[in-house]
């Protein structure tokens, strides 16, 4: 390793040993050695930006406090975290559904609220998994092409599928899927044509 000369002593050394004109150039060299020359600014730079939901907590609009607590509990039971894979709660799927349902069709909004109210009325948020099983038993019936005619059973099917989609389409989920093909959910996006 070469010996490091203190900056002040180094400048003094060169300023007393070379002519003035050369000293100015040498001083510039010293400055450059300490900080690399600035890159000329791009005319239209692509700035690195941060996604909103990594810095802010979503404000809830649609569900009541009880309904949302029930939805979170439901999310944790239907799609819990599993090893390194975050579950529906850690991926903020319930928070996303609060946003999404606020814009959805009225019949879907009604079904969601009624379904959560039914669960909430049964004390679902405080039940353990074993005791909640009877409330979730419609999810164990065989798949049919058409949704169930019973609105509560239909709600359960919808909320399970919605939570699953919101979970696997989340940033948090993508981060755990790193080397897996398609795990990051990248695709070609079409911008507005006009």
């Amino acid at each position: 390793m070469s010996e490091r000369i203190p900056r002040r002593r180094w400048i003094k050394t060169v300023s007393t040993s070379i002519p003035v004109a050369a000293a100015a150039a040498a001083q510039q060299t010293v400055i450059q050695a300490q900080s690399p020359p600035p890159v000329p600014p791009a005319e239209r730079p692509n700035l690195e930006v941060t996604v909103l939901d990594t810095v802010g907590d979503p404000i809830l609009h649609f569900f009541s406090k009880d309904q949302f607590a029930t939805l979170r509990r439901l999310a944790d039971i239907l799609l819990p975290a599993d090893g390194a894979m975050p579950g529906a709660v850690a991926t903020e799927a319930p928070e996303f559904l609060d946003f999404y349902l606020a814009q959805s069709a009225a019949d879907r909004q009604t079904r969601y609220k009624a379904g959560l109210d039914r669960l909430s009325g049964a004390g679902f948020a405080n039940l353990d998994a074993a005791r909640s099983a009877s409330l979730l038993s419609p999810l164990l019936t065989a798949w049919t092409y058409h949704p169930p005619t019973d609105e509560y059973a239909r709600f359960l099917r919808e909320v399970k599928e919605d939570l699953f989609r919101a979970m696997v389409n989340s940033r948090q989920f993508a981060e755990t899927q790193g080397g897996r093909r398609g795990g990051a959910g990248m695709n070609t996006y079409w911008h507005v044509l006009d």
Binding site: V51, A174, A184
Partner: peptide, 10 residues
């Protein structure tokens, strides 16, 4: 110009 790669979570 009208297409770019994006992540579904974005």
């Amino acid at each position: 110009k009208k297409r770019s790669m994006k992540a579904v979570w974005d």
